[in-house]
């Protein structure tokens, strides 16, 4: 499992992350929920080492190595002039656990072409492309930062589809999103964040079964102050 313990990050006087701890189990979809500025993105970037944390530990299956986690940000990270094909080759060159077949399969499903220039793609297509860069790595943990943000309905459905597909198997997923409606029925676990702190954590099906509450219901309760 992916364990995060006591994460702290300050920017000047502000505690962007205040003692954040949680775990992500393998084979589950865990959603980090919080209002804007709650620190969600910072946590994900902190886990991946893109932002140095003031303190706290991140353990992935017991080690500090990030080799078992793939990260999918909501912005474009490949050099500007590259085509989709160039990018896939780049990943293949750098990563031993790159799965070319998965990449090709997703490329077909998402109807992207190797010759497409990345920066010319629409926002939706760029998002799908980013998904490929993450999902085509044979890694047991996947971290996604706002995979559905600012995307049209049809592309959202395609993206949500991937969480019901075979590509989900054997993966522990941690994601942040505001679009809870679209993926409510896919979530296993929910972590609520406010002002850099974890204020609630629960199993989504349990919340439904024991309390008849959807994730959104619980969200309203928890943030009602």
């Amino acid at each position: 499992m992916l364990e995060v313990h006591g994460l702290k990050k300050r920017y000047g006087r502000k505690n962007v992350l205040d003692n954040v701890s949680f775990t992500v189990q393998p084979n589950t979809l865990t959603c980090l929920i919080g209002l804007n500025g709650a620190g969600k993105s910072t946590i994900l970037k902190g886990i991946m080492g893109l932002i140095p944390l003031d303190s706290g530990t991140v353990l992935i299956d017991g080690t500090g190595s990030k080799d078992a986690v793939a990260y999918i940000p909501d912005l474009q990270t490949m050099p500007g002039h590259m085509t989709v094909g160039d990018a896939l080759d780049y990943m293949n060159d750098h990563y031993a656990d790159w799965n070319g077949e998965t990449a090709e399969s997703l490329l077909r499903t998402f109807q992207l072409m190797r010759t497409d220039v990345i920066t010319d793609l629409s926002k939706g297509n760029q998002a799908k492309f980013n998904l490929i860069l993450g999902f085509a790595l044979d890694r047991p943990y996947l971290i996604l930062d706002e995979p559905l943000a600012g995307i049209d309905i049809f592309t959202k459905e395609q993206i949500a589809w991937i969480f019901t597909s075979e590509f989900m198997e054997g993966r522990g997923i941690l994601m942040t999103t505001h679009e809870i409606d679209e993926i409510e029925h896919l979530i296993d676990r929910v972590i609520f964040l406010q002002d850099g702190r974890v204020i609630d954590e629960h199993d989504a099906e349990e919340m439904r079964e024991l309390h008849g509450k959807s994730v959104q219901d619980r969200m309203r309760e928890v943030y009602a102050r």
Binding site: G49, L75, G80, T119
Partner: peptide, 15 residues
């Protein structure tokens, strides 16, 4: 500050 945030990609690379 370029067209893309290549720095993310660089920092995420293994090694």
């Amino acid at each position: 500050f370029g067209k893309t945030n290549y720095i993310y990609r660089l920092l995420l690379l293994p090694g």
